[in-house]
C-alpha cells in the first residue's frame, strides 16, 4: 500500500500500462517535456521516449484523429485533452469516427483509444476550464464513459481503460488531482463498470461520480450528525451503467438524490431518474431529485461556489425527499 495523489495514481497507472504493452502511447498538448499542465504525465516522456509520449501540435481534432490512425496501425493511444472545454474541436472525430468505426467496419477494426479529460470546476479558472461535458459522450453509442473519483480507482480504472478494446472517454476530477489516498498497486482489478457503495446508509441513496463523490461523502457525514443515514454510491461508469447496483440501493432506501456538476436540464441525472423510476416505482417514497449546475454557461469563478453542488444544496435535496 502506498499513498498517492489522484494525479500521481493516474501517472502510475499509465506507466504500468506502458511497461506492460509497448504499443501503449501517450499523446496530447504539453504531455511530454512539461508532463501535462496538471503534471499527470510527468516523467513519462523521460522514461519512454518521444516516440511513445508525443507532444502533439495544438489541435484537438488532429490529436484524436491521428490517435484513431495509430489505433488502426495496432497502437493503443492514450490521448489527453488539456481541459474539458477544449474537447469540442475533437467532438467530430470522437462522435463521428471513434464511436462508430467498429460498427461501421462490421467488427473488423479495433479502436482501443482512451481520451482523458480533466473535468469539472472548483479551481478558480477562467472560462472553458471548468466544464462537465459527460452527458454528450454518455449519449453517444459506441463509447464507454467512466469517471474516477479517488486515487485508488484512478490507478485501476486508467489501466482498465487502456486495456479496453473499445474507445473510452475517461473523466478526471481536476480539483481532486491533489487529494491523497492509499493505493494498493497490486490489488486485483475490479469490474471496470461496477458502481461502488462508498458510504453505506439506510435513509437516502445519493448517486454521484467524479468530483461530486467527495462532496456527497461530506454531506453524508453532516447528515449523520443530524441522525440521517445517506448511502453514497459512486457510479464510476456512466456507459455502461451499473443499473443493478443503483436499483438495489434505491429499493433499500426508497429515496434518491442525484448529484453532478453539469447542468441538471438534459443532464446525466435525467437518465438516472428515468431508469430508477422505471425499476423502483413501488419502492420510491419520493421522486428522484437532482442537484447540479444551473442551466447557464459555467459562471465566472468568483461565484462558481454557488453553481457547484455543495453540502448545503445536497442536504436540502435530501430534506425535500422527506417532504412528500
Amino acid at each position: 500500500m502506498t499513498t498517492l495523489t489522484l494525479g500521481r495514481a493516474l501517472n502510475e497507472g499509465m506507466r504500468r500500462a506502458m511497461e506492460e504493452d509497448p504499443k501503449v502511447l501517450v499523446m496530447g498538448e504539453d504531455v511530454g517535456r512539461l508532463g501535462g499542465v496538471f503534471r499527470v504525465t510527468d516523467g513519462l516522456q523521460k522514461d519512454f521516449g518521444e516516440e511513445r509520449v508525443i507532444d502533439t501540435p495544438l489541435a484537438e481534432s488532429g490529436i484524436v484523429g491521428t490517435a484513431i490512425g495509430l489505433a488502426l496501425r495496432g497502437y493503443r493511444p492514450v490521448v489527453e485533452i488539456q481541459f474539458d472545454g477544449f474537447v469540442f474541436p475533437a467532438t467530430d472525430q470522437i462522435v463521428t469516427q471513434l464511436a462508430k468505426m467498429h460498427m461501421r467496419s462490421l467488427g473488423t477494426v479495433g479502436l482501443p483509444v482512451v481520451v482523458r479529460i480533466p473535468c469539472g470546476g472548483g479551481i478558480g479558472a477562467v472560462e472553458h476550464h471548468s466544464e462537465s461535458p459527460e452527458a454528450y459522450f454518455a449519449h453517444t453509442a459506441g463509447l464507454r464513459v467512466v469517471a474516477c473519483s479517488n486515487a485508488a480507482d484512478a490507478y485501476t480504472m486508467i489501466r482498465q481503460a487502456i486495456a479496453s478494446p473499445d474507445p473510452v472517454i475517461f473523466f478526471e476530477p481536476k480539483r481532486r488531482y491533489w487529494d491523497k489516498a492509499d493505493v494498493d498497486l497490486d490489488a486485483p482489478l475490479p469490474d471496470p463498470h461496477a458502481a461502488k457503495v462508498v458510504q453505506p446508509g439506510t435513509d437516502v441513496t445519493v448517486l454521484a461520480y467524479g468530483p461530486s463523490v467527495k462532496t456527497c461523502l461530506e454531506a453524508a457525514s453532516a447528515a449523520a450528525e443530524e441522525g440521517r443515514s445517506l448511502e453514497v454510491v459512486d457510479l464510476r461508469s456512466l456507459n455502461p451503467l451499473d443499473i443493478d447496483a443503483i436499483t438495489a440501493s434505491v429499493r433499500r432506501t426508497g429515496r434518491c438524490v442525484v448529484v453532478h456538476e453539469a447542468p441538471v436540464f438534459g443532464g446525466f441525472g435525467a437518465e438516472l431518474a428515468a431508469r430508477i423510476t422505471e425499476r423502483c416505482f413501488y419502492s420510491l417514497e419520493a421522486p428522484v431529485l437532482r442537484v447540479g449546475g444551473y442551466s447557464t454557461p459555467y459562471p465566472p469563478s468568483r461565484i462558481e461556489d454557488h453553481y457547484l453542488p455543495d453540502l448545503d444544496r445536497i442536504l436540502d435535496a435530501v430534506d425535500r425527499t422527506f417532504g412528500w
Binding site: 484523429g65 491521428t66 484513431i68 490512425g69 495509430l70 488502426l72
Partner: peptide, 17 residues
Amino acid sequence: GSQTLHATGYAMGIQRD
C-alpha cells in the same frame, strides 16, 4: 476530410514500427 487524420496517424504508426 476526416480520413486524412486517420491516414496521418496510421503513417505515424508506420514510423514507430
